[in-house]
Design a protein around this nucleic acid. Structure first.
Length: 213
DNA sequence: TGCCAGGCCCTCTTTAGGGCCTT
């Protein structure tokens, strides 16, 4: 079973292109449906945290003053992840900060990303909305700590991912929903999804029959 | 003063516009 890294950043804003920086990163490593590793750290990028972001996340300038330098944290995070494919809730956001912070540390960011917002829009279309907290409540998943702190959000995104993978496998009788399959689901329109999953299920059955022969 | 990004998705669409989602 392949490994997946679920990541969440807390930041000073929404765009590294506007000078926003990461303030905290958390990564949960999943293997065979189980959490097999965790990485979490505040990170000091030498920037001020806007008051409304402190109100949202609980992360203050005084907390960051005592945190390790952003570059050091990103080196440790990159070493922790290696080439493991990644998942995030609204991955466009976390991927931007992952790439920007690694670039500032002069490190590559080759990992492919899958987005649980895109997966949930396809697989849980009847949810009231597709915010992380709403999906966690809607699917009766456990809340793991204060929302808008990196590890709590990474844990909830990991639980959401596991639930979506489990539903995929049960509904479509798939042996597993690995990162490559999740990328195909994410790239597929909602209308085309049943046909894609029927093909995946048929390929899976054929493989099982071949093994049993 | 007020707004700032960007990719995805839906629809009163496709030669566009606006909401969602993340901090």
């Amino acid at each position: 079973m392949s490994c997946i890294a679920v990541i969440d950043f807390e930041t000073t804003g929404i765009s590294p292109a506007l000078g926003d920086r990461a303030t905290e990163v958390a990564i949960v490593l999943l293997e065979a449906g189980q959490v097999v590793g965790r990485f979490q750290s505040l990170m000091n990028a030498g920037v001020q945290v806007p008051a409304f972001v402190t109100q949202l996340t609980g992360i203050s300038n005084s907390m960051l003053a005592q945190a390790p330098a952003a570059e050091r944290v990103m080196r440790d995070a990159a070493r922790f992840v290696g080439d493991t494919p990644m998942v995030a809730h609204n991955a466009a956001f976390d991927r931007k900060f992952w790439q920007a912070e690694l670039a500032l540390a002069d490190l590559p960011a080759p990992q492919p990303f899958v987005c649980t917002v895109l997966l949930a829009r396809r697989l849980v279309p009847n949810a009231p909305n597709h915010r992380l907290g709403t999906l966690v409540d809607f699917l009766h998943l456990p809340r793991t700590g204060r929302a808008h702190r990196a590890m709590a959000d990474a844990e909830m995104a990991a639980a959401l991912l596991q639930q979506l993978r489990q539903d995929l496998c049960q509904r479509w009788q798939l042996a597993q929903a690995d990162h490559a399959l999740l990328r195909r689901v994410q790239a597929c329109s909602r209308l085309a999804l049943p046909a894609l999953l029927a093909r995946e299920a048929a390929a899976c059955s054929a493989k099982v029959a071949e093994i049993e022969r």
